[in-house]
Simulated assay, not measured.
Amino acid sequence: MGSYNKCLQLALAAVLAMAQGIAQAGGYVDVLDLPARASALAASSPLSGVARAGERLVAVGQRGHIVYSDDSGQHWNQASVPVSADLNALSFPSARQGWAVGNDGVVLHSQDAGASWHKQLDGRQIGALLVAHYGALASAEPGNEQWPLLVAEGQRLEAQGADKPLLDVWFANERLGYVVGVFNLILRTEDGGQSWTPFQDRTDNPQGFHLNAIASTGDGLYIAGEQGLLRKWSEAEQRFVALPTPYQGSFFGVLGKPGEVLAYGLRGNVLRSTDQGRSWTPLQTGLHASISAGVVDAGGAYRLFTQGGQMLLGQGAGAGLRRAAQPAPVSGAVQAADGRLIVVGSRGVQALPDKTPTP
Rank of each mutant, 00 (worst) to 15 (best):
G259W: 02
G268A: 09
L255D: 10
E237M: 05
V241Q: 10
G259K: 02
F252M: 04
S250C: 01
K257I: 05
L255F: 01
R267H: 08
K257G: 00
K257D: 00
L243S: 06
G268M: 11
G259F: 03
V270Q: 13
Y247E: 07
Y264M: 01
L255W: 00
T245W: 08
R267K: 11
E237S: 07
A236M: 10
G256I: 12
G256T: 11
G249C: 08
F240P: 10
V261E: 05
R272I: 11
F251R: 02
Q238E: 14
L266E: 10
G259Y: 02
E260N: 05
G265D: 12
F252P: 04
P258S: 01
L271G: 08
T245A: 13
L243I: 12
S250P: 07
Y264S: 02
L255C: 07
P258C: 02
S250D: 11
G253T: 11
T245C: 05
V270I: 14
F251L: 07
E237L: 03
R267Y: 01
F251N: 07
G265P: 07
G253P: 01
G259T: 14
P258A: 01
F251C: 03
G265I: 09
L271V: 15
V270Y: 11
G249M: 12
F251E: 06
Y264T: 11
F251S: 04
L271K: 13
S250Q: 04
E260K: 01
L262P: 08
R239M: 05
V254T: 15
P258N: 02
G256S: 03
Y247R: 08
F240Y: 12
P244V: 12
N269G: 10
S250G: 10
G249D: 11
V254K: 06
A236L: 14
N269E: 15
A263F: 06
P258T: 13
V254P: 07
L262Y: 15
R272F: 09
V270H: 08
G253W: 02
Y247C: 02
Y264D: 04
V261M: 03
A242P: 00
Q248S: 14
E237R: 13
A263L: 07
G256P: 04
G256W: 13
E237F: 00
